[in-house]
Design a protein around this nucleic acid. Structure first.
Lengths: 143, 143
DNA sequence: TATAAACTTAGAGTAAACTCTAAGGTCAAG
DNA sequence: CTTGACCTTAGAGTTTACTCTAAGTTTATA
């Protein structure tokens, strides 16, 4: 049985985070000492690791709560329940990626358009591009 | 001279957002009526568009404030001042992209590993992968 | 026994960028 | 003159995921 600090160092979470997760229904101590100390079993450790893994994959705390509710009662859930959540998250991630790729492209174009020297910004092409209000339209820069 | 609602519909911002930007030093009404109504000039419109463009490119509200301070006093700033901000933002964006790409990869692998049918999740490979606590390591799935 | 490290709780704070509310004032049209 | 659309302010609320604080308790070690 591990105390919260031990679970923390074992999982790489902080004790604060573990308590936060408890508040959100993700990790519960199997036992409490008389003094109220949390004590975690090996199964708790595995659950904490599941949580950490799922968070790293991009699932929100709420998603993880849902995944855990499936996890403790697998036989009453289908693979579809799981893939649905996963698919939604993937769509989510893909949306964010394309936003960021478009920012990346624009930023690169902006940087390529300006030497970045110590000369006055009076004619800085980045400033001009932002002023042109079509800097978003990366196309407008590719001639 | 435009009222805030007119500037809003012209720029695609909301009046709320414009006031929020004002509080943050991004957009100021050139004039106020006796009753306190904000009135915006064409130059204000251009500034609001600059702000919107810069935000879309990924610059934070604080970044935009800095860019605007350069914009109004270009001769006392260098191109480097501008490229520095832009470069930092690009690094930022690139970091986020690689995080998201790694999530994307893992999510895709998870989805490919599970049919997502209506059968019980008892042996759902996604759940198993998350339990294996190395789902992060996409490699572990590529056989 | 004394001290330090670790634990407890409730609740506040942080970050970023809005978004909304309440309570009231202004203005053009009919 | 009334209605409705639009404007004002200060300030609170939203979202997500922590992160920290204060004040106090417990436990292991020297």
């Amino acid at each position: 049985m591990l105390k919260i600090g031990e679970l923390a160092s074992k999982t790489g979470l902080t004790a604060h985070t573990i308590r936060f997760y408890e508040k959100n229904g993700l990790i519960n101590a199997s036992e409490r000492s008389d003094a109220g100390y949390r004590y975690y079993t090996e199964a708790d450790v595995r659950q904490a690791e599941f949580v950490k893994t799922a968070r790293k994959v991009g699932f929100s705390v709420d998603d993880v709560a849902t995944l855990l509710s499936i996890r403790v009662d697998k036989s009453n859930h289908t693979c579809q329940d799981v893939t649905d959540i996963t698919q939604r998250k993937l769509i989510d991630v893909n949306e964010k990626i394309s936003e960021l790729l478009s920012m990346q492209q624009t930023l690169e174009i902006l940087l390529n358009s300006c030497g970045g020297g110590l000369e006055s910004a009076t004619h800085c092409s980045i400033m001009e591009a932002l002023d042109a209000s079509n800097a978003l339209n990366a196309r407008s820069f590719v001639q």
